[in-house]
Design a protein around this nucleic acid. Structure first.
Lengths: 283, 283
DNA sequence: ACTTGAATATCGTGC
DNA sequence: GCACGATGTTCAAGT
């Protein structure tokens, strides 16, 4: 039998079953009326009530109520489970170190305890990720725009690896930033950093192209333009003329299913483009 | 009886119990051998294996394996659960809209099904949050430094609401940014945005205050003064002169239990201070 | 071990 | 409903 199960056990009975299940490495589910106390990175106390306690052989512990996706209390994998009967009640305690954390569940009454030996079934395949989006574009670059040609993925730069690098129909370098779902202004900042990094890297070329790559205003401190900040502080308009250049040396394209209004504003400010595209084709 | 439980039920038997439990608004736990398919914001498929399915009356659904704190598949609250027997197997499906998402669990075999009517016990008290840290400082402002006086919390600015705003012993405006745990450079950037916004707002006043009054230091180790700036954000380069002013019109203080080395460098670059403080007093 | 960044993040709050 | 920030975020990957 792969599953053991007891209904309305005594505390001592529940303890025996728990210890056996620990020994076998079972996945355990306990329904019962209990209090919960946690102390570690923070601290919390939960009064008496009906809850579901899940104990995993890898050390994870979860306390669920009847609401919410998140457990009301938990312990991450790597913790150690112990059970005991104290003051006539079943007490389950899960501890770990680094940081030191303790989760204690005290059962006033155990309604149902089940344990199952789990085998196999770890082959999860996830689709619709950012990688799918990249694959889709590499197979059909015209989804970005006619004439676009990808030349590298994860191309390194001083601002980190960029998702897709390529050239457009005019031979202008293009940085493509991929997001698998609707994005806000932060994604525009990320794209701006890559573009700036590439403009600096290709600076000489830009000069030759006669497009006046750098504005004369702050030419002295040449690496420190203020438009590439990560956060959302770039709201001051008109701080640079270069971004309004009609033919910038490097283009930026943000690929995402949709973008927020604020993000659209920033894209326009910087002269970047948005291409609406889903990780997988719509039905 | 508040708990119903069936061991090794037939698929039809399991269906009856499930539908009854849905009707009663029970918290449900199902052990069984199953496949899982999800389609929505992403898509995934999970081959056959032993898992624990948790169904909540608020619409949440969780599929847990024997590993990890996170469910391998799930559906958030607000979804609708339905059960049926198809092709001789129990099928549980949870759907929601906006976005459209579907989670389907097909049981080859149900080992154990339990359902419990949950009552009460929603009074969770959590300690050690950022709000605790704010409360602690407002009650004892001298923890920041002698003479510090908070004047507002969540004070608005063009960069968003700042955690605590106040004045130091010299009457200089102070922006305090709170973090409940160890922080990296991003927190310094956040603080810098607030300080810059306030400096702009109070610009005229700052010009007049050009006296030589300097802070007495707060006794912690002074940051090294190296200028090895990597310039990957440079968020306040616009007001360049103000940064090096020995008596800036606005001070910035980052309150956190500890900070990373890179964050310390940036703090020093911008002339900000760090105060080491926990959300709750150490024992 | 520390740091960085993504997630089907989730969850609250404010607009 | 949308956007933004905090979370005992968790988690994987890179350094």
């Amino acid at each position: 039998m792969t599953v053991t199960s007891v209904h309305d056990p005594s505390h001592r009975e529940a303890l025996w079953e728990l210890e056996d299940a620990f020994e076998r490495g079972d996945l355990i589910s306990v329904f019962g009326r209990c209090t919960v106390a946690y102390e570690g990175r923070a601290a919390s106390d939960l009064g008496i009530g009906d809850r579901l306690l899940v104990l995993k052989p890898d050390g994870a512990a979860l306390v669920h109520t009847d609401e919410g996706r998140q457990p009301v209390n938990w312990q991450p994998p790597g913790s150690e489970h112990r059970a005991a009967v104290r003051e006539g009640r079943l007490r389950v305690r899960s501890t770990r170190t680094n940081p030191d954390e303790t989760l204690t569940v005290r059962f006033e009454r155990v309604h149902q305890l089940s344990a199952m030996a789990v085998t196999g079934g770890r082959d999860l395949t996830l689709h619709g990720s950012e990688e799918d989006l990249r694959t889709r574009i590499l197979e059909r670059p015209d989804l970005i725009e006619p004439g676009f040609e990808p030349t590298a993925t994860e191309r390194p730069s001083s601002a980190g690896p960029m998702d897709i690098f390529g050239v457009d129909a005019d031979g202008t370098p293009v940085v493509v930033e991929l997001k698998r779902r609707r994005v806000g202004p932060d994604a525009v900042g990320q794209l701006a950093r890559y573009v700036r990094a590439l403009r600096e890297e290709l600076g000489a070329t830009a000069e030759e192209r006669g497009d006046g790559g750098d504005d004369g205003g702050n030419g002295d401190d040449g690496g420190d333009g203020d438009d590439g900040d990560d956060g959302d502080d770039g709201d001051d308009s008109g701080s640079d003329a270069a971004r309004d250049d009609p033919s910038p040396a490097v283009r930026g394209i943000l690929v995402a299913p949709s973008i927020t209004g604020r993000a659209a504003e920033r894209l326009a400010d910087r002269g970047f483009d948005h291409v609406a595209l889903e990780p997988t084709p719509e039905d």
